[in-house]
Amino acid sequence: MIIDLPSTTTSQLNKKLVELRERGGAVALGRVLTLVIAADDDEHLEDAIDAANEASREHPSRVIVVAKGSKTAAPRIDGQIRVGGDAGASEVIVLRLYGALASNSQSAVVPLLLPDAPIVTWWPGTGPRNPAADQLGELAQRRITDSAAEKNPIRALGTRGKAYTDGDTDLAWTRLTNWRAQLVSALDLPPYEKVLSATVTGEADSPSTELLAGWLAEYLKAPVRRVKSSSAQGILSVTLERRSGPIELSRPDGRVGTLTQPGQPARRIALQRRDNKDCLIEELRRLDPDEIYEAALHGLGKIAATARKTPAGSGAKAASKESTAKAKAPAKAKS
């Protein structure tokens, strides 16, 4: 059910929610959090709402969508309430803000928040430089951005790294969960040797590739090189050099990865790119600070990036050969 309330107020929206609750039995007692979506009123807005609806099946919540319209229009709120099949397991309130209200979104959101429930703010598109200092970010215990949606993803990632506050996270980091799990499980197998160096190859403007390299640099305490590919999408390969030989996880087609390591048969692994629905569901499972993400941000400054760009098909092999040669020549590897 979708109910439109043009030129409305937050008080009228609250009254309508109570009326729907009493008439149709749609209650807020089972909501575990309030999810605030801050976005522009464009063609991508419905995609964000669909992702929130899907996430609500695991995390029942009240979803407040703040869609900023024209700032030159007369101040008004065009409201919309979605319940039932149009809202997943949540209730969705869409606020289209115009005029001065578009720059003062906090005043429109606060009266609609669930009492005594955690608040999560998500920017599915372009987000603020400092999420914790943003109007809607100040309300939240957890703030989710997506560097991949920015015009300059790498610069946005670096800016947010400097402004990091406990509770910040990024969907570019969440997309790495499967990669990190596979690499950790590979290192848990014998021989239990120290990693001498690592090479991460991927798309030049992929924030996930940068974060993966930063994570490895922070925790392996070994040299990590970031090789930029000219045509690959996302991460292409990761190579970890050890005395017994390299561990290599490559994904040339963007869907299926291959893990190779000494003494073990090659394994094919499902490593398809994760969509926003899966990433959002994972992020809503925790509301505490993500110390590992913070460490990965700190590791960004330890990466040795290369200016050379490799073709998508040969990036993994080139990175593996070069890192193998460095492992055989310790004096050069240290530099």
Score class of each variant (00 low, 15 high):
residue 118 P to I: 03
residue 146 D to F: 09
residue 66 V to Y: 01
residue 150 E to L: 09
residue 59 H to Y: 06
residue 116 D to F: 12
residue 101 L to Y: 11
residue 139 L to C: 07
residue 105 S to T: 14
residue 67 A to V: 07
residue 149 A to G: 02
residue 54 E to C: 12
residue 54 E to M: 12
residue 120 V to L: 07
residue 79 G to A: 06
residue 91 E to Q: 08
residue 125 G to W: 08
residue 104 N to Q: 14
residue 37 I to N: 00
residue 140 A to K: 05
residue 130 N to F: 06
residue 40 D to G: 14
residue 83 V to F: 11
residue 56 S to T: 09
residue 62 R to E: 07
residue 29 L to V: 12
residue 125 G to I: 03
residue 93 I to V: 14
residue 69 G to F: 06
residue 103 S to K: 14
residue 84 G to C: 09
residue 120 V to E: 02
residue 58 E to Y: 09
residue 151 K to D: 15
residue 125 G to R: 13
residue 72 T to S: 09
residue 49 I to P: 06
residue 47 D to N: 11
residue 92 V to C: 00
residue 52 A to F: 08
residue 77 I to M: 03
residue 132 A to D: 10
residue 102 A to D: 07
residue 135 Q to M: 12
residue 98 Y to T: 10
residue 95 L to Y: 06
residue 112 L to M: 10
residue 114 L to F: 00
residue 135 Q to Y: 02
residue 92 V to L: 04
residue 50 D to S: 12
residue 139 L to A: 05
residue 98 Y to C: 09
residue 43 E to M: 08
residue 118 P to W: 06
residue 135 Q to N: 07
residue 106 Q to R: 14
residue 51 A to E: 10
residue 67 A to F: 06
residue 40 D to V: 10
residue 112 L to C: 04
residue 92 V to W: 00
residue 152 N to L: 15
residue 128 P to G: 04
residue 45 L to N: 05
residue 48 A to L: 06
residue 46 E to G: 02
residue 132 A to N: 13
residue 132 A to Y: 07
residue 58 E to M: 12
residue 95 L to N: 04
residue 37 I to V: 10
residue 49 I to T: 05
residue 107 S to I: 11
residue 133 A to L: 13
residue 63 V to I: 13
residue 52 A to P: 06
residue 151 K to Q: 15
residue 50 D to Q: 14
residue 53 N to L: 05
residue 84 G to W: 08
residue 29 L to S: 15
residue 106 Q to E: 14
residue 149 A to S: 12
residue 106 Q to D: 11
residue 134 D to M: 01
residue 151 K to G: 15
residue 148 A to G: 13
residue 83 V to Q: 10
residue 29 L to W: 09
residue 89 A to Q: 12
residue 134 D to S: 10
residue 123 W to V: 07
residue 99 G to V: 07
residue 57 R to K: 15
residue 108 A to R: 04
residue 96 R to F: 07
residue 33 L to N: 00
residue 105 S to H: 06
residue 112 L to K: 06
residue 29 L to P: 01
residue 81 I to W: 03
residue 52 A to M: 04
residue 149 A to F: 01
residue 115 P to H: 05
residue 77 I to C: 03
residue 37 I to R: 01
residue 30 G to Q: 01
residue 119 I to A: 04
residue 136 L to H: 02
residue 140 A to E: 10
residue 32 V to W: 03
residue 111 P to Y: 05
residue 84 G to H: 06
residue 54 E to S: 14
residue 31 R to N: 03
residue 128 P to E: 01
residue 119 I to V: 15
residue 91 E to G: 00
residue 37 I to D: 01
residue 53 N to K: 13
residue 130 N to Q: 14
